[in-house]
Design a protein around this nucleic acid. Structure first.
Length: 230
DNA sequence: CTATGATCATGA
DNA sequence: TCATGATCATAG
């Protein structure tokens, strides 16, 4: 009872087989509004994102044929490509930080950047800029030209430096004390249903302790640079 | 619980 | 005004 209206004809798109195919679909997306895409996909546009924070990302993934679902895999498994929306403010700059992945709760100290989950996730990303200014109705927001990105040597160096500093703290059992103020381009912030959610971690004394789960986020100061070279 | 997708909302 | 810390939905 009182269940929200379900979408009557949600479309399911097959995953793109080649990178070119994916880019072609991006071109079809560029210049359309979220309302137009939602209509094509048989989806209802929510009034706002307050209770539908992942709606835009999920809508565009569906349109492009992302097939990873809720698996811990790149969105386009076969292509090894991760898709990220880039919400833009009225000035055309990133409005929010970009969530990448969760922070491992335990650390054996042997983890290296090259094999890290975050590096793999960021190794090949499809960025899709979308208008996100609060005064534009959700359905009227335009989607821009998406582009494929691989970190440059310099960009990866910056991310690796932040990651190593943060991971050092985690190895020392200080994850619970890490704040979003650390990390120049890569930061760690809470990532959970709420602040009361607890998970098993390791304290500074090496004992098991319950901490609020956290995630890695790219600061807008970093994603803003990606727009320049896009 | 963890994973996916993120944006909200308040203090400084 | 804006970044930090908090939060929302859903699948498995």
């Amino acid at each position: 009872m009182m269940k929200m209206k379900e979408n009557k004809f949600p479309q399911k798109i097959a995953a793109p087989v080649t990178q070119d195919e994916l880019l072609q679909r991006c071109e079809q997306l560029a210049g359309k509004t979220l309302g137009q895409v939602a209509a094509e996909m048989g989806q209802i546009v929510p009034e706002n994102l307050r209770r539908h924070k992942g709606w835009v990302g999920n809508l565009l993934e569906s349109y492009l044929g992302a097939d990873a679902g809720t698996q811990a895999q790149p969105d386009f498994i076969g292509l090894g490509i991760e898709m990220k929306t880039m919400p833009l403010n009225a000035l055309g700059q990133p409005k929010e930080s970009t969530y990448v992945c969760t922070v491992p709760l335990k650390q054996n100290g042997q983890q290296v950047w090259q094999d890290s989950w975050i590096r793999r996730k960021l190794s090949h990303v499809l960025w899709l800029p979308v208008e996100a200014a609060a005064d534009i109705p959700l359905a009227d927001r335009y989607i821009g030209n998406g582009w494929l990105w691989k970190p440059t040597v310099e960009q990866e160096r910056m991310l690796k430096a932040d990651w190593e500093e943060l991971m050092d703290r985690i190895v020392l059992g200080e994850q619970a004390e890490i704040t979003a103020r650390e990390g120049e381009y890569l930061q760690i912030r809470p990532k959970a249903a709420n602040s009361r959610v607890l998970a098993k971690g390791v304290s500074a004394s090496g004992e098991s302790e319950l901490i609020n789960p956290k995630g890695f986020y790219l600061r807008t100061s970093f994603t803003k640079q990606l727009l320049v070279t896009a």
